[in-house]
């Protein structure tokens, strides 16, 4: 089984800082996303699953509308695998309702001047993110353990580091708790198959908040020849793993 632990905004520097040994498997490093004009989540995951730079195609839909994008399985490497499970991936199986709600709360947070209101929004925003995380985690671990269905590939997309990071990146305690949680998941799944841990981009601090950084990160529990790969390089790597 191929397992892809797709983590939005997993920051390489924080993985090092918080000593997350399981997020750094046999091989690991940064990815090169310099071919893209900006580190956009939808663009990067679309390019990852299709193996092609999809920036123009995604952006022509518009900032808001691009979140409706759904690639056909035939355009992705998922079609190469029997019974794949792809959880919550932007551009493929994304739960738009949940993510729209968090974007809406984020907008409200920055619009209001009222401190109490800000606190209230932040609490709700964080609560929703954690709830969603637990749901995806449960489905992801269940799919990996499922023997009957014989999934050849399981991908779980985890947005918690990105969503929480946008409002709380300067809060080291919260961020460490999240990274340790992701590290524990990596530990749990590291012996269940060929594992690829991948982020679209990282995150940099903007005061107490966080913004996307201009590189992503990767790690595998098997030997690869990757050095500083592009996100599109994983298409070939993954399809070759099947053979």
């Amino acid at each position: 089984m191929i397992i892809i632990f797709a983590i939005d905004a997993l920051e390489y520097e924080k993985v090092e800082k918080f000593n997350c040994e399981n997020l750094k498997q046999m091989h690991y490093g940064r990815t090169d996303i310099s071919e893209f004009s900006q580190p956009r989540t939808m663009v990067l995951w679309s390019s990852f699953m299709t193996g092609m730079n999809k920036e123009k195609e995604v952006l022509k839909d518009g900032d808001k509308e691009m979140w409706d994008k759904k690639w056909d399985i035939k355009e992705t490497f998922f079609s190469e695998f029997k019974n794949p499970v792809v959880l919550d991936l932007p551009g493929y199986s994304y739960d738009k309702k949940v993510h729209d709600k968090s974007r809406e709360l984020l907008k409200k947070f920055f619009e209001t001047e009222d401190k109490k209101e800000k606190d209230k929004i932040r609490k709700q925003y964080n609560k929703d993110a954690f709830e969603h995380h637990r749901k995806i985690k449960e489905q992801f671990l269940k799919a990996i353990e499922e023997k009957k269905e014989k999934h050849e590939l399981v991908l779980g997309y985890f947005s918690v580091a990105d969503v929480i990071g946008h409002l709380n990146f300067g809060n080291t305690t919260i961020m460490k708790m999240i990274y340790k949680e992701l590290d524990e998941i990596a530990e749990q799944i590291s012996k269940k198959g060929k594992l690829i841990i991948l982020s679209d981009h990282g995150m940099k601090a903007l005061g107490m908040f966080g913004d996307h950084s201009e590189y992503g990160s990767w790690s595998t529990n098997f030997d690869t020849k990757l050095k500083k790969p592009k996100i599109t390089d994983f298409y070939k790597l993954i399809t070759e793993l099947k053979n």
Binding site: F130, T172, M177, E181
Partner: peptide, 18 residues
């Protein structure tokens, strides 16, 4: 609250991070 949200026991060691 975060420990509970993540379904974990309260970790006092995080106070050090704070």
């Amino acid at each position: 609250a975060i420990c509970e949200s993540l379904g974990k026991e309260v970790e006092f060691a995080y106070v050090m991070d704070h």
